[in-house]
Design a protein around this nucleic acid. Structure first.
Lengths: 120, 120
DNA sequence: CCTTGACCTAGAGCTACTCTAGGAGGGTAC
DNA sequence: GTACCCTCCTAGAGTAGCTCTAGGTCAAGG
């Protein structure tokens, strides 16, 4: 699987995928005879997870820890679980922020509608 | 009202508030005799809205447009409405990303639980 | 009187990309 | 067969949006 396919499927840009490899948070992407990266199904799954974590605001440092634990294998499952649980808490905060923002925007929009309705 | 009060109430840091003033997205913060900023209720409300928009990913450039429209007054209400509606769409996308990430994390966590349950 | 703490400005530093430059390999059109 | 185009590569510069530091003023408390 080539980089453009992975990019379109996991939602990361080609640049970002290369960047993630460079900083070591996507383990073991092999290369074809032509020097191009070729991605396994495991790579794709991992990058898809990273994309979801990134989209919801996980910082790179945390991804690095997560990737290191992933490389350690089964011994580190408990720590990986804890890390994801921390992220769950972050997701809850975001959900609250999202709801608050939605409410504020709705309020503003109704004020604008009043102003627009009254005027013309 | 002084900057530390506003910071704790609107959720932006003191640094960020000064930065927002500097780039012109918080209109007309007056100064006391000592040179310190003193914030009105309107300032606070505006910064609270900006904080909500920022927390949900609105880029600075868009905030600049929004602030410019706000300064224009009632003539620009329609455009302000359109801008907020665009942001509503962005909020919907974020909500989807949040849900997807939640689902992925739950899946991973249940896999980890299996691994932890099976082993000891 | 001296220290502590909140404020100020100007500007450097940081994170996480994102884009550009410069170059190679491969497929198709004239 | 060579010109053009697309995708890939690396290395490194640029950007957004803060965040922090340095260096300084002023007021209140011990």
């Amino acid at each position: 699987m080539k980089i453009s396919d992975v990019a379109s499927q996991c939602g990361l840009s080609i640049h970002t995928i290369r960047y993630y490899e460079e900083i070591g948070i996507c383990p073991a992407i092999c290369r074809g005879f032509d020097g191009n990266r070729c991605f396994s199904a495991e790579n794709l799954e991992w990058l898809t997870l990273l994309a979801a974590l990134r989209d919801t605001g996980m910082p790179i440092e945390k991804m690095k820890r997560f990737a290191a634990l992933y490389k350690q294998g089964d011994d580190a499952v408990l720590e990986r679980k804890q890390l994801l649980q921390e992220h769950q808490a972050a997701l809850d905060i975001q959900e609250k922020q999202l709801d608050q923002c939605k409410a504020l925007v709705l309020k503003k929009l109704s004020i604008y509608d009043d102003m627009l309705g009254r005027k013309p």
